[in-house]
Amino acid sequence: MVRRDFLKSTVKIFFLLISIISVSVFSIFTYPWKFKRKELTFFHATDEEALPIKGVRQVFIKHIRGNTQINSKAFIVNSGSELFALSPVCTHLGCLVNWYRPKNRFLCPCHGGQYDMNGKVVKGPPPADLNRMPIKIEDGKVYIGLRV
């Protein structure tokens, strides 16, 4: 019966191999290996005279992602000592935060995350501070860097 046993294990190994190959091909095929990596691009956001003296101003940046026209938002903050741009994307799970002037805080509507004027987490579940965006001022125009 050696022949029979050999045939049995051949069949088993054959089907095992087919399964392993199918599962691997499926996973490799499904994973998005070659999606477009994002590159830092500067967009004109506003003009220098419109910058806040002290406080927060939101600006909108129009750009194109794929075939879709997107109107992104960014906050330009002047804390008195420093001028910087903050991304409105909550670091928790990606909702957009609001600037709430009465409390001088950024509030996230989703799970109650709160950040102060510098983007530091002060309350709620976010694991990190709001991301800073690159900003540069040239010829009186303000540009904000977006990864698109």
Partner: peptide, 25 residues
């Protein structure tokens, strides 16, 4: 956006699970 971001909180491999689910970033 919120629901799929949950996958990214998995330690170490979260980012890759996220890409797999979203088919991109």
């Amino acid at each position: 956006e919120v629901g799929t971001s949950m996958a990214s909180t998995v330690p170490f491999i979260g980012k890759y699970i996220l890409y797999l689910i979203r088919g991109g970033e």
